[in-house]
């Protein structure tokens, strides 16, 4: 398989940071009560994660191993501060809706985790792809759960009123926690089904090959 395709599928699905690695739980639980906030946070993380991966990958040979974590944190904090400035200047509504969670991206374990686990071992291009894939994986997860929570908790989707019926608990972190747990269960179940089907297919092909060889 093409390595870029594998990096992309890992980030989006097989090592999805939210559902499979359970990283970035704090902003997930704090923001998925609104689909708009969730999507906004996700897209911000995509940009920061991609840029941090690129910079850290480019600097990996210059940064001594002993101080790599402080250096990563400084780079990530700079990018987060820059993102905050941009959002406050050009998208003030989103800036306000993200509240304190925007600053907390500095300590988001997805970003530091990808820097440590991937960017400092791979090329700039691979790291960029990894950043985009993981960021989009995070964004999709947050947005899907945001839509579910907002729909059930407020009867709306992306702020548009859909129905009058609502269960207020789903607009709170407790409801978010419930939706998060159920989403993880469903996602892992689907991935397991897919992988089992893949294994069955591989085994069947192997058996057919073996039979063909025996017949020959």
């Amino acid at each position: 398989m093409n390595k870029y395709k594998k990096i992309t599928l890992d980030g989006l699905i097989f090592q999805n940071p939210t559902f499979m690695l359970v990283l970035g739980t704090c902003p997930t639980l704090g923001l998925i009560s609104s689909a708009t906030s969730a999507a906004g946070m996700g897209l911000t993380v995509v940009v920061i994660l991609t840029l941090s991966n690129i910079i850290i990958s480019a600097l990996k040979k210059l940064i001594p191993n002993e101080v790599r974590i402080p250096c990563y944190i400084v780079v990530i904090a700079t990018l987060v501060t820059f993102a905050r400035m941009l959002l406050e200047k050009f998208v003030p509504d989103l800036y306000e809706s993200l509240g304190g969670f925007l600053a907390l991206i500095v300590v988001n374990c997805i970003i530091l985790g990808r820097a440590e686990a991937f960017a400092n071992k791979h090329t700039v291009l691979e790291s960029a792809v990894d950043g985009i894939a993981n960021g989009l994986g995070f964004t999709c997860a947050l947005t899907i759960m945001g839509i579910i929570c907002e729909f059930i908790g407020n009867g709306s989707v992306f702020g548009l009123h859909v129905m009058d019926f609502k269960i207020g608990m789903f607009a709170t972190p407790a409801g978010s926690f419930l939706v998060y747990g159920i989403s993880i269960a469903v996602f892992v179940y689907v991935i397991n089904l897919f992988e089992r089907a893949k294994r069955v297919k591989v085994n069947r092909l192997a058996r057919e090959n073996l039979l063909d060889k025996e017949v020959a």
Partner: peptide, 30 residues
């Protein structure tokens, strides 16, 4: 020594980031 290299690297990154943010703040201040 490695210690010196670590200090220089860390401070260089801090300096570059600090200068970058200062310049950006000038453009993006609300």
């Amino acid at each position: 020594s490695t210690a010196f290299k670590c200090i220089v690297t860390l401070f260089s990154i801090l300096l570059v980031c600090g200068v970058f943010l200062t310049i950006m703040y000038g453009f993006l201040e609300v």
